[in-house]
Amino acid sequence: MSTVARVLTDEMIEAIKAYIPRYPSKQAVTLPALHIVNDRLRYVPLQAIVEIAEILELAPAQVQDTLSFYGYFKQDKPHGEIRAWVCRSVSCALRGADELLEHMCHKAGLKPGETSANGKLTIEFGECLGACEMAPCILEGEELVADVTHEKADALLAKYK
């Protein structure tokens, strides 16, 4: 295994270890560890799984099992610098969310889950973002965009051209 380059930096390892005292079991640090890696690398490659498992004294399969359950972490390649989650659940759908997502995907030439060629933007569909009073809404990175018209969506896309 020594031929594979290490993925986790010392800083990531320290950040993961800092979570261990919070829980009576090391396995409970799985999700925090996945987030720590994902926040920095924008994906969680298989080698990171092996290294997380080593820190948490788990089998890599246990970490991989957990990761694969959640739809949040990408494994094949990093997502864009910004991930834009376009809500498609009922309150947003009643105010045109399906059309909005279709418009954005068409305009950007991407399918949900895909990243633009310049690596700046990933368009995702989201299930209820909990901002139904601002429907249709988009979570652009950590910022919520409210009452998104097609013009607003175009402006959002233009930022990452």
Binding site: S25, A28, V29, L31, Y70, G71, F73, G126
Partner: peptide, 23 residues
């Protein structure tokens, strides 16, 4: 403790399993 976009984590024992680091 931050989740990872899964509705089922709102079910109380689903939440517990997720908190423990499992599916």
């Amino acid at each position: 403790h931050v989740g990872a976009a899964a509705y089922i984590c709102g079910e109380e024992t689903g939440l517990i399993e997720s908190l423990e680091g499992k599916r």
